[in-house]
Design a protein around this nucleic acid. Sequence first.
DNA 1: CTGAAAGCGCTTACAG
DNA 2: CTGAAAGCGCTTACAG
Lengths: 348, 348
Amino acid sequence: MPTLQDVAHRAGVSTATVSKVLSNTPYFTDQTRAKVMQAVEELGYVPHLAARALSKGKTRIIAVVFPYLYDTLFSDPLVLRILEGIESETSRQGYNILLSTPRLNARGPDSHYKQLIQSGYIDGVIALDNVPFASVLDPVRKRGIPAVAIGYYGTDFRVVSDDVSGGFQLMTHVLGLGHRRVGIITVPFNIHYSIQHRIAGLRAGAEAVGVDFDAFPQVDGDFSTDSGEAGAAKLLDAHPDLTAIISLNDRMAMGAILAVRNRGREVPRDVTIVGYDDIPIAATISPPLTTIDQQAPELGRSAMRMLLDVFGNHSPELVKMPTRLIVRQSSAAPARWREEVATHHDSR
Amino acid sequence: MPTLQDVAHRAGVSTATVSKVLSNTPYFTDQTRAKVMQAVEELGYVPHLAARALSKGKTRIIAVVFPYLYDTLFSDPLVLRILEGIESETSRQGYNILLSTPRLNARGPDSHYKQLIQSGYIDGVIALDNVPFASVLDPVRKRGIPAVAIGYYGTDFRVVSDDVSGGFQLMTHVLGLGHRRVGIITVPFNIHYSIQHRIAGLRAGAEAVGVDFDAFPQVDGDFSTDSGEAGAAKLLDAHPDLTAIISLNDRMAMGAILAVRNRGREVPRDVTIVGYDDIPIAATISPPLTTIDQQAPELGRSAMRMLLDVFGNHSPELVKMPTRLIVRQSSAAPARWREEVATHHDSR
DNA sequence: CTGAAAGCGCTTACAG
DNA sequence: CTGAAAGCGCTTACAG
């Protein structure tokens, strides 16, 4: 591979000159500039990034860190959407993505990851950081590397989805349809900060309509479809009069739809089901799912833009990404069910 | 950050000694070894990867290349599963993943990607390479970087799923249930090599049972759920007597289920639907989908292991990953439908 | 068994 | 406007 030296020789100038011309320093004759560019062209010269990294102290590599907490990391479509957003902005800016999925437990992330962070390979970090018991950003902060978190934790510079508003939209939609017996499938608080905010939003939504949130039965799932099915089963069996179930992610909502069907009822005729996330599949299942769009790709893009701000020594403010209620066919007014319930039961 | 020099000073030895001790060269007093290790410990020394990369010519960075061809890249669950496999093996071996998603068209991949490949940052490449008109591995080959393709194209060292066998399993399963009027939803040949092989497998399966494959109607989709729904609609409207539809991916199969329902029929009672890929959602939709498991994570792991072989100057043979037929509730014998069809129609 | 020295390919004050 | 030289932090023949 041709080096800077080779280019310098062929152009008849010093390596310093080549370097400066290539980095677009001003104050150069058009002539030298042309000579250099021609030599670059003829030799097919491409800068050696490791060498540049060593002398500049900058690698143009961004570590994208998704802690490997649950097995859901690689089965969660949301992760891929966020990655898509980060990638689009990152490549547009000429940065590269080093994908890191450290194992994380209460004692912190694994040592291979910690070495990577300290290795000088990384200009900046974008991390999903949403668990209370440990942060993948601890070693990053210690090392003084610019970092942005997508989540409620770990650093001053953060991008979050407006989970409170999402919860609010979901609850007011369901109550607005006329439902008053609503079950909720959530996830243990300590697993995920976002969930706490979504719950707060649900509560605020109920209060706004003048309904007692604490009267609504809740069960815990673990994000998986199976846990949603089990949770909905538990809710429906304990509270047969429920007309709606709010699930705090889409996959659990899909499980809830199955549970409703298994009990010989229909969605949304008998029970309204709403989810959260708007994963790609949500629009195409049957019935298509009413849910909250988090704008995951935009979350990722926004994080990368914020990181560039941090590079520039700015102190960007928290970005709170608005959520959007996506109304599809899985939610409907409860009226019909109430009218039909008597005859429906008789006909069995 | 402490450097090798700092460690050398504190341990009272030369940098050469520190370097060699750390790289586990033999021939050292236990004493010097201990002194060095202690200094490393006390200083919290971590090697600077860019410096090491420059002097060794090795970065321990693997580029994982997913060409950005269709928008399906980031909405295809299979991609995430393959990435999961690559990641697990890669991190186990102490390598890092640089994720690259070059834009690819007939003139080849974009120039940012080509620069990256030539930049000296990359020790090896694992690429999804499955389109006939251009290869992301061209620049890699030119640069002489070791590479493994997951797919039918681009390099001598390849890992593929046994698509022929997958097609064979699918067809013999459907025919084995007794179906003889089978529609097929595929994708234009020129988009994806795997599809050609799956079709060949379908044909072989039909021939093995003594059925004329060419008598089965085919329509083209584009991998999306919507296209599957449209395709199935076309098939069912043109051939109302079909009792089974084979879709060459799961998302199109999910669309096909919708199309069946929209026509007032049921899966699998009236029409059997089978898919391909076993994406995570396939098990949890209603009815759960009969499909082919490609073992995507194992495909990824296997590619990384093969790359290590190539690093070691071996010439690994093509790996053909076996597929597994996953029988779920979306497929059933057509008998019942045939018995009921008359009365069923009358009752409308 | 250990060290001095050159070199990996770039960039960047510093001079001129 | 251009260049000589030092330096980024490591590794690796080569000596001893």
